[in-house]
Design a protein around this nucleic acid. Structure first.
Lengths: 111, 111
DNA sequence: GTCTAATACATAAATCACTTATGTATTAAT
DNA sequence: ATTAATACATAAGTGATTTATGTATTAGAC
């Protein structure tokens, strides 16, 4: 469960965007989806993910719904209206970051 | 001197690549170049830059040359052969990171 | 001619996201 | 029956970066 130093600071952006794209999801489901989308390059750790979900909820960006699956508990997270706005902002910020870095590093990425 | 959380982990990559592109440079010069290339979006702090330069030198990726300009001292840094290889690797790693993130966030950037 | 901003280096303490480690419990697979 | 996968949670430790200081020279504004 590790990845490059570059991933630091991307967790909230990732969580907000996958929730925007997929509606409600639970924590474990987010880790598996991100693992799949990233072709095993981004392996979210629970120690980072759960506190982040709790924090985003405390900030009013996510709302939760607890569902019992047999004797097991699942906690679904979905974006609030504020969360949707934040998701958009964060993705824009990321795209801007890529453009800036591309200019500094002289790599052609941003079209 | 601040910027987004996303910048974290990019400092070494930036330093190595601008040195690769510009030959020898001194610390202050690096901050002004990066500020210019990033259109004021990336403002390197001295507290981060100088320790990073010292560390890269200690790792054998940079070599230094001290020059006296009047009564003022300038410390020029340049890549060693290992440093050149690292610069290449770091940029490749960054491009790969962008591709992965683009896939996860569903943003089209990488060609 | 003096004051401020810019140039140029340096380091130490504090911060904070994230990793690592640990814990509990259920369910599926071998 | 045992292990791996599912599913949550939190606490201690790490480490890059920010913030805060410090010293000193040179250029520019007024």
């Amino acid at each position: 469960m590790h990845s490059s130093e570059l991933l630091k600071g991307t967790l909230q952006t990732i969580v907000l965007k996958v929730l925007k794209d997929n509606g409600k999801m639970y924590g474990y489901e987010i880790t598996t989806l991100v693992k799949e989308l990233s072709e095993n390059r981004i392996l979210l750790t629970e120690g980072a993910l759960y506190p982040t979900l709790h924090r985003l909820e405390a900030e009013g960006l996510l709302r939760t719904e607890v569902v019992n699956i047999g004797k097991r508990v699942r906690k679904y997270y979905a974006l609030t209206p504020d969360g949707k706005a934040q998701a958009k902002d964060r993705v824009n910020e990321f795209v801007d970051f890529i453009k800036t870095m591309s200019a500094v590093l002289h790599v052609r990425m941003a079209q």
